[in-house]
């Protein structure tokens, strides 16, 4: 029997992976090596958050209609989630002087990869965790883009909820909602806990 993964789980995890790969280096570059116009770039990345999901979806369909399906849904989710990861990264990198730590590591003989893996990334681990949970929660709960850009089987849990609410009984949709919350509530609690822990560490840190 073919195993059916939870709808949206692969998508949310894929979003987290792509966001980490894109937003961590981008956040580092923006915070550590600002250039003329880098502030504008940061604001532009946030722009999709202010657009209604339907507008974004229609725009993506008009431009990349032939890609309609899981890939286009992923692209839509990334437009919504990268800003969260990027904001968390830039805020964290600006909350402590990463340049100072890098200089210290250089003076101690650390090469660029050693500085990256022994100093920068370990100091970003909380931020990466918080950012990943945020991205997961946003992607997991996203409906508009997932519903409009998808073709065939529903890609996200909210799309399944919509399906159960409109086509099946209230008991089934109630059960589906419970499963949805059982996943998202621990994630939200983890975000709160890690966020608090990180600020406390930053305040106490050297």
């Amino acid at each position: 029997m073919k195993r059916t993964p939870s709808p949206g789980l692969e998508l949310a995890l894929g979003c987290v992976a792509v966001c980490l790969l894109v937003a961590v280096p981008a956040g580092y570059a923006l915070a550590r090596h600002p250039f003329p116009g880098s502030g504008l770039v940061e604001e532009l990345v946030l722009l999709p958050l202010s657009l209604p999901g339907i507008t974004l979806s229609m725009g993506l369909l008009a431009a990349y209609g032939e890609l309609r399906g899981p890939l286009l849904v992923l692209a839509g989710h990334l437009l919504y989630t990268i800003p969260f990861m990027l904001r968390v990264m830039t805020a964290t990198l600006r909350s402590f002087d990463v340049g100072r730590l890098e200089s210290a590591a250089r003076s101690l003989g650390a090469s660029l990869p050693q500085r990256l893996f022994l100093v920068i990334l370990p100091n970003l681990r909380h931020a990466m965790m918080v950012g990943s949970l945020l991205v997961f929660a946003v992607s997991w709960g996203e409906f508009n883009v997932s519903f409009l850009l998808n073709r065939g089987r529903p890609q996200t849990f909210p799309a399944v909820l919509y399906d159960t609410c409109t086509n099946q009984s209230i008991q089934v949709s109630g059960a589906a909602t419970t499963i949805f919350l059982a996943i998202v509530i621990p994630v939200v609690i983890a975000i709160q806990w890690l966020g608090g822990k990180e600020s406390s560490d930053m305040e106490q840190g050297a």
């Binding site: 402590f96 100072r100 730590l101 200089s103 210290a104 003076s107 100091n123 560490d201 050297a206």
Partner: peptide
């Protein structure tokens, strides 16, 4: 060269 900074610059992790 060993370098000692004013603000210590110790690795918090």
């Amino acid at each position: 060269f060993g370098l000692v900074f004013q603000n210590y610059s110790l690795f918090p992790h």
